[in-house]
Every structure is written in structure tokens, then in C-alpha cells.
Amino acid sequence: MTGQIVQFGIDALSLGSLYALMALGLVIVYGILKLVNFAYGELVMVTGYTLFLLNGSPLPWLVMALVAVIIAILTGISTELVAFKPVREKSVTAVLITSFAFSTLLQNFVLLFISPRARQVPLPDIFTQTVELAGVIVPLRNLLTIACAFIMLGLFSWALKKTVLGIALRAAASQFRMARMLGVPANLIITTAFAISGLFAGVVGILWLGRIGSVVPGIGLEPLLVAFIATVIGGMRSLQGAVVGGFLLAFVDVSLNYLLPQHLLQFRDAFTFSFVILFLLMKPDGLIPGPASGERT
């Protein structure tokens, strides 16, 4: 019995860690620009393919992972330059479409230059090893995910509270114009938000690949959907909400995995997404509404 509880706890916590990081990466941009980045999932894809391309290079794995995350950050920033900046002032719809087009663009670049088929990524042994904890066999990568998430969440909330840039980011999320009138440059804030978004997606990408071992062009869809659901549940504009939403979603997912019979389990996505629609209708601001917000930029 204890074993089962430990197993369930670690499953839910590690999946929740992943989901929370994904959701945070999406919300950091939404919170400031009030715009949804449909190309967010492709940051995970870019991370995977960077790892794949570095396979066989003499670099130690940690360096490869670092390079992959940096590429994700750069891709995040280029999303802003290509899909957001030129149309930001025109309309919400325009930005949604450009980011959707940018996501297709990235995916098809991969089809064009690499391959439509799945590619193995290099992974160190730590992702396949297991340890025994309270009588149950636990994959080490789950513990690694939890540790990684907690370190990142800790660092992130520290930076938001204690650094001037962090305070400026939070200020811009509630009153962008006022922040600018105090001298906070709009471009700095927006670029930083996209860079952070890329950082989260990159780390999530590494951990996600650690679970599945290979990368395909469509890999970004699932993280994007997860991030959508988690942020809708938690509150589109609140960072804490994204984290809460991520863990909650993972808890529900893992519980359904344990409880639902097989033939209903395949409809899990339909259930969760119907739930998302209902949730948005009943509680448009999510569980944690976040800062009372003014205008878009």
C-alpha cells in the first residue's frame, strides 16, 4: 500500500513538474503581451533536434544539453522577432496566425532538412537507471525531473522578487505602459519574456526527451496542449496559477491512468479538453486570476 502511494506520488509529482514548467513558459509571454504563442511547442522540438544533430560529437552530454537549451532560447527570441514584433500592434488574430504559421514553418524545416521519421537523441544512462525507494522501483529520471523543476521554480521566483529586471517583468505584466513611463524599455521586457519562455521549453524538452528517447517533427503539439490546459485551469495571467494548473493536471492525468479502464482511457484527451472548455466558460480567469490587467501593448 505504501509502495503504491509512493509510486503514485512520484508519478504525479514528476509529471506535474514537467507540466508546471511548460505552463510557466507559455504564461510568461501571455502575462506580458496578452498573446498566445502557438509556436511554443516547437521550442521543445528544436531542443530535441539540436540534441540529435549533436549526437556523435565529442562534447560531453551536459554541454550538448546546454547547447540545446540555448538554441531553444534563441528560437524563442526569434519567434518574437518574426511572428510577434511586426504584427503586435495590429490585431490579436494576426499574432495568433503568424505564430501558428511560424510553428508550421519550423516543423517543415525539419521535414525538409532532416526527416519526417523519428530520430534517436543521445541520452546519458541516468535516464534509464532506476532506484529502489520504499520498496518500489522508481526511474531515476522522474526524481531528476522533480529536482530540476524545483530548482528552476526556486531560481525563477527568486529572480522575480529580488532582481530589478524581475520586478520590472512583474510590473509590466500588470501595467505595461506605466512600467515604460518609469524607463523600463518595452523591447527588453518582451525579449526577456521570450528568452525565459525558451529556457523553460528547452529544459522541459530535455526532460521530455528523457522519457520518450526520440524526436519527431510533431513532438511539440502535446507540450503545447498541456501548457494550454494547465494555464486555462490555473489562470492565464498568473504565474502561480500556471504552476498550480500544471500539478493539478498531472494529478488528474495520473489518477485517470490508475483508475480508468482501457477502453475509456483512449478518450482521455477528449475528456480533458471538454473539461477545459467548460472550465473556461465557468471560470474564465482560472483558479488564480492574477494581476488586474490593463491594456495590451
Binding site: V164, I167, A168, R170, S174, Q175, A179, M181, G183, V184
Partner: peptide
């Protein structure tokens, strides 16, 4: 932001405090 850097500070009629930042953080910003 450029105007602010040039030395002009604005106090808008809507006040626009950053509501979820502390008083200290508002001042630091």
C-alpha cells in the same frame, strides 16, 4: 522609456501603482 531616461517623470491620474508589487518594490522600480 526614452523620455523617462531623459529626466521626465510622470505621475498619471489613474495612479497606476503596481498593485501586486510591494511598496518597496514599487519604489525600487
Amino acid at each position: 522609456e526614452k523620455v523617462a531616461h531623459a529626466g521626465i517623470a510622470m505621475v498619471p491620474e489613474t495612479r497606476d501603482v503596481f498593485a501586486d508589487l510591494t511598496v518597496l518594490e514599487n519604489l525600487r522600480l
